[in-house]
Every structure is written in structure tokens, then in C-alpha cells.
């Protein structure tokens, strides 16, 4: 048991919450068409928001968990969720036709950058945890 909260845990939580807020505000998808219907990228954005909520919940819960091995397990579980998040815009869910549109120019790159950072911090966090376990 180790109740010490590491810096990487806090950064991970902040990144996940930023991703959640960003996916519904700063880097959301293209707006609705003139007839009020939504384009495909809107649904990709909805899935990203769901993934961001899951990541935020995992990273927030693990801060308060005492067992370091459970924390490590949760950090590992975040990595495939992030990979799924990176694959959604443009690969699993198609985006709009023009690459100049907001979903291509802002949403997809911002999602990739945020999730790559979450993966990188998760790996660093795992490294920190493994060192703590060894001690």
C-alpha cells in the first residue's frame, strides 16, 4: 500500500480532463449543415467525448486508490483506450470530404496530440510505479 500521489498521476488526470473539455469546446467537430443535420464528423466527435469521459474517470479514480498495483493496471488499461481514440477520426469513423474542414484541420490532430501525450505520460507513470515497487 502506498498513498503517495505522484506528479505523473496528476498530469494524467489534468490531460484527460483537458481532452474531455476540449472535445466539447476547443476542438469539437464541424457545425451542423444548413438544413440542421449533422455531418459524419459529429458522430466521431461524440465517440471521442465518450472516450475522454472514460479516461477522465479512470485517471481521477486511480488518484484516490491506495494499491499501487491497481494503479499500474489502470494506467495500462488507458493505453488501448487512447489507441482506439486515435484511430476513430478518419479511420474507424470517416470525417468530412475536405481536409481543410475543422474536423480534419483541428479536431483530428488535437485528438491525436492529446492522446499521444496521455499514452506518453501513462508509460512514464508505469515506469515511476515500477521503480516504487522495486524500492
Amino acid at each position: 500500500m502506498n498513498r503517495k500521489i505522484s506528479v505523473t498521476e496528476v498530469i494524467l488526470c489534468l490531460l484527460s480532463v483537458f481532452f474531455l473539455i476540449g472535445s466539447i469546446s476547443i476542438f469539437n467537430s464541424c457545425g451542423p449543415k444548413e438544413d440542421g443535420s449533422f455531418m459524419l464528423c459529429h458522430y466521431a466527435n461524440n465517440v471521442e467525448t465518450g472516450i475522454a469521459a472514460v479516461l477522465s474517470a479512470i485517471s481521477l479514480i486511480r488518484i484516490f486508490l491506495p494499491d499501487i498495483k491497481v494503479k499500474a493496471g489502470m494506467a495500462v488499461s488507458m493505453i488501448p483506450v487512447c489507441v482506439l481514440g486515435i484511430l476513430i477520426p478518419g479511420h474507424l469513423v470517416p470525417l468530412c470530404m475536405m481536409k481543410e474542414m475543422r474536423c480534419h484541420a483541428v479536431m483530428a490532430p488535437a485528438v491525436t496530440v492529446c492522446l499521444v501525450l496521455v499514452i506518453a505520460v501513462s508509460v512514464i507513470d508505469l515506469f515511476v510505479i515500477s521503480r516504487r515497487v522495486r524500492k
Binding site: 451542423p32 449543415k33 444548413e34 455531418m39 459524419l40 468530412c96 470530404m97 475536405m98 474542414m101
Partner: peptide, 10 residues
């Protein structure tokens, strides 16, 4: 006019 899926002209 709007092309394909999107509300954007080409």
C-alpha cells in the same frame, strides 16, 4: 453546391 456528405462547396 454542397458536395457529398458535407456542407461545403468545392
Amino acid at each position: 453546391a454542397s458536395a457529398g456528405c458535407c456542407s461545403v462547396a468545392v
